[in-house]
């Protein structure tokens, strides 16, 4: 019964979004980004419906809606902090060194996800948030006329009606049936140095629905709350 009430409470609450920021320590003497020109690398969004049976079905319409909404929300959020903002679609930029940098960013992102947010830490990284794309990032900055880049990817599952019904019923027997969750990984790269200056993993509650414009905006706001630009 306790669990049921807790679940209900979470559903009812307006803000159930949690965020988890990692960033370069001030003490590390990294020059702050002169926030004038930004580059938003089009967010990669994959949304699935979680059926009662636990099967994940990709929903193209949700994914596209969310991608559009999230891109708009991020643009709005960033535009208020930056003089110019350009948007890059990674799918048409996979050639040449820019393509290598985009792939390298995925590899660095994966390492950050595992070793900063995961249960295992690298002893060679202890105490310092020290990740970089290298000098090649300058190329991306020059090509796009930007000082920093924001990379965002989002994956989420949404419970179907059947699943929600199941959750309510099962909770009465003390069994927790997760409703699915949406996670967003964001990183800011200083394009003059290639360093990752900030990353954030935001886990959205059921109310911050990025499929809708308002939900995307509220998530973008919490995601980018203390972004160093």
């Amino acid at each position: 019964m306790k669990q049921f009430l807790a679940l209900l409470a979470c559903v009812a609450l307006a803000a159930c979004t949690t965020t988890n920021v990692r960033k370069v320590n001030q003490a590390q003497n990294v020059a702050p980004i002169t926030s004038t020109r930004g580059l938003l690398v089009q967010p990669d969004v994959n949304l699935y419906v979680l059926t009662a049976a636990g099967m994940q079905e990709r929903r193209e319409d949700w994914s596209r809606m969310a991608q559009t909404n999230l891109a708009e929300a991020l643009k709005a959020e960033l535009s208020s902090r930056t003089k110019t903002l350009r948007v890059l679609d990674p799918q048409v930029s996979m050639d040449g060194r820019v393509g290598q940098l985009i792939r390298l960013n995925s590899a660095v992102g994966a390492s950050v996800a595992i070793f900063e947010y995961g249960p295992l830490k690298l002893p060679t990284k202890r105490g310092a948030f020290d990740w970089t794309l290298g000098d090649g990032a300058k190329l991306l900055g020059e090509a796009q006329g930007a000082d920093y880049a924001l990379f965002v990817s989002a994956n989420g599952t949404y419970a179907s009606a059947g699943r929600k019904a199941l959750m309510v019923g099962a909770a009465l027997f003390g069994v927790a049936v997760p409703l699915g969750q949406q996670q967003i990984f964001a990183s800011v790269v200083d394009l003059h140095t290639g360093r990752l200056v900030w990353t954030n993993v935001a886990t959205a509650g059921p109310s911050a629905d990025i499929r809708s414009a308002e939900g995307a905006r509220s998530l973008a706001t919490s995601l980018l709350k203390d972004i160093p630009v």
Partner: peptide, 8 residues
């Protein structure tokens, strides 16, 4: 062995 993780 690695310094920044096996992907890097």
């Amino acid at each position: 062995l690695s310094i920044d993780g096996p992907a890097l």
